[in-house]
Design a protein around this nucleic acid. Structure first.
Lengths: 338, 338
DNA sequence: CACATAGCTGCACACGTTAACAACGAACTT
DNA sequence: AAGTTCGTTGTTAACGTGTGCAGCTATGTG
């Protein structure tokens, strides 16, 4: 069927061992025979059987990039940046296998022999068992985006809390004091970190927290819309709303403009994530950039070094988030406070 | 190191063949021994070595999903929908390897032994050589999104032209006659198909085509912005602009509002693709839904059937695009024409 | 001249799995 | 009782590649 090193060996009147060595540039082989065999291989369109290689070398050439889910809750931009970051780093040295953890009934296919290393882009605590599974089997592992408890891993996460803190502080600096929050999906760590940043900023600047200014969302566009609708029904409306991601911010803006109010004229809105489109909506959205692509790239580099050195470093690294100021926040003049 | 069927065989006092058969549910094996061996395997945390399986069974369990590039020109939504569509279909039966064709210096790693089948999400004619390469090696292949010449393949493509036709016809029905177009990246087939649909609609309805209403873009947000800026400088501005994708439509809207004009009050804008966010911008964007997820899902199903039946069907299937009417087009009353 | 050495090549086995074929006892047939 | 069949298990080779060890030849060394 397809041509093997044995076929080449016959034609070149050498043993298959010699062919194998020649193609792998072994110093044992004479330069001329090496060259001769290589040309023969090229002319026969030989490609090695990687399954056989994998079997004997105990390397799969596969890298896994696993998301908590690919069905819902993973935004397009998130997936895109993650894949891009990893893809940029691994060249054509590895195959990149992209799957959702929830696609697997059993993890049988996930093992040392099938993966040289694994990146988990963790979005939810539901994938804890997967992370433990991989960790137990001593597959080189890097967990991105979500802090992991209990199990020691290399952990790269965005500093959501300080990002949210800076964002809300910025609102306060612009004179806002009635600041509402629309939160993300409940069991996501990111939800908690962003809420904590919000609370931290409010407390630090002695701005009162109000229960009716705290809304639940689930990171979907629609949930931002409905939460905002409820906020608009309040007697004393907030002057600014911190939406825990940009998608919900868009939903909120939609709700506000449908009520014949304007952003930021009547109500200021800020988001989180800095989606690609966020600079191009009207008004351009003030938000926090979450460096998913950076995290993925760094994570991939770490993983490659684990694989190469056969040694795992296990630490938690926070990657700085960044305030992106655009046009969706109004500066309130004549405030009473400092 | 890791446990193999031979280890299990020793412990169970049978030959490794029996173990292999038991785990593969061969009818040759006695029910009781089968059960006994399975429990033993489970208790030892046995997972098969897929490299060895692949070698002897001549199946890799790998499916490839290749994009023209992952670096630029591929939108996040596009990547997302494509992966989602394929991922939904293949369950945990296969690994899904996602790469950009331009990531490879040589295609050595792409061969029959490493891939049971390949989906190419083709966005540019630059990947023609890749498609030919795969086709020559008789790897089960499905090409999505872009029509392929010269080489016979299974080809699933959105009917961009009829979508653009319907969209522009809709503009004309709303009373528009000064309709500009901002085109996509030049060597992309989609650019041509959408332009053809535009021209077809204009001609069919006897609306004059004007050279100064034809702008070049490259599918990026920025290019929509700059192209629109130029359109606004014209003496007789268009009343409607057909942007060849939603990203450019956003850029165009940005340019319009910055000139203190309104959409759709002063100028109507339509896009193409129906990105997830397009319904949530202000005004909500009238556009054409390109069923990338459907195409991917269908393509994956076709591919699986090729693999199963070991028989390739080669035909071109157009997948219907769909007009999505929202709020970015103004109805012009008192037009002179029918 | 015997012997060590360097440079190159081949033999034989290993990796973990599947499968064609043989083998064996029990039950059934004639 | 001998032959046949069935159900179950084992023997052995195969998939394509890499590698430890042995072997060969030519060259250099004492």
């Amino acid at each position: 069927m397809s041509v093997t090193i044995k076929d080449i060996a016959k034609l070149a009147n050498v043993s298959h061992t010699t062919v194998s060595r020649a193609l792998n540039d072994s110093p044992l082989i004479n330069q001329e025979t090496k060259e001769r065999i290589r040309q023969l291989a090229a002319s026969l369109n030989y490609t090695p059987n990687y399954n056989a290689k994998s079997l004997v070398l105990d390397r799969s050439y596969n890298l896994g990039l696993f998301f908590s889910t690919l069905h819902t809750g993973t935004s397009a931009g998130f997936l895109y940046e993650a894949i891009k970051g990893v893809n940029d780093v691994i060249k054509d040295q590895f195959n990149l296998i992209v799957r959702g953890i929830d696609d697997y009934k059993s993890f049988e296919k996930v093992n040392r022999k099938s993966y040289d290393g694994i990146l988990v882009m963790s979005q939810s605590s539901t994938d804890q068992s997967f992370i433990e599974y991989v960790s137990e089997r001593e597959i080189p592992l890097v967990v991105l985006n979500r802090p992991i408890d209990n199990v020691q891993v290399m952990n790269l996460i965005p500093d959501d809390q300080s990002g949210a803190f800076r964002l809300v502080e910025y609102l306060i600096e612009q004179g806002h004091r009635r600041i509402a929050i629309i939160e993300g999906k409940e069991n996501f760590k990111s939800t908690q970190a962003r809420r904590d940043g919000y609370i931290e900023a409010m407390v630090r600047h002695q701005v009162p927290l109000r229960d009716d200014y705290r809304m639940h969302g689930n990171y979907d566009l629609e949930s931002g819309y409905t939460a905002m609708t409820r906020l608009l029904e309040l007697e004393t409306r907030p002057t600014a709303v911190f939406c825990c991601n940009d998608d919900m911010a868009l939903g909120a803006i939609k709700a506000i403009t449908e009520s014949h109010l304007s952003v930021p004229g009547d109500i200021s809105v800020v988001g989180f994530d800095d989606h690609m489109f966020s600079g191009f909506v009207t008004p351009a959205l003030t938000t926090v950039r979450r460096p998913i692509e950076d995290i993925s790239r760094e994570g991939a580099l770490k993983l490659l070094s684990f694989i190469e050195t056969k040694q795992m470093v296990k630490e938690t690294i926070f990657v700085r988030t960044e305030l992106v100021i655009r046009d969706s926040v109004k500066t309130i003049t004549g405030g009473l406070h400092s």
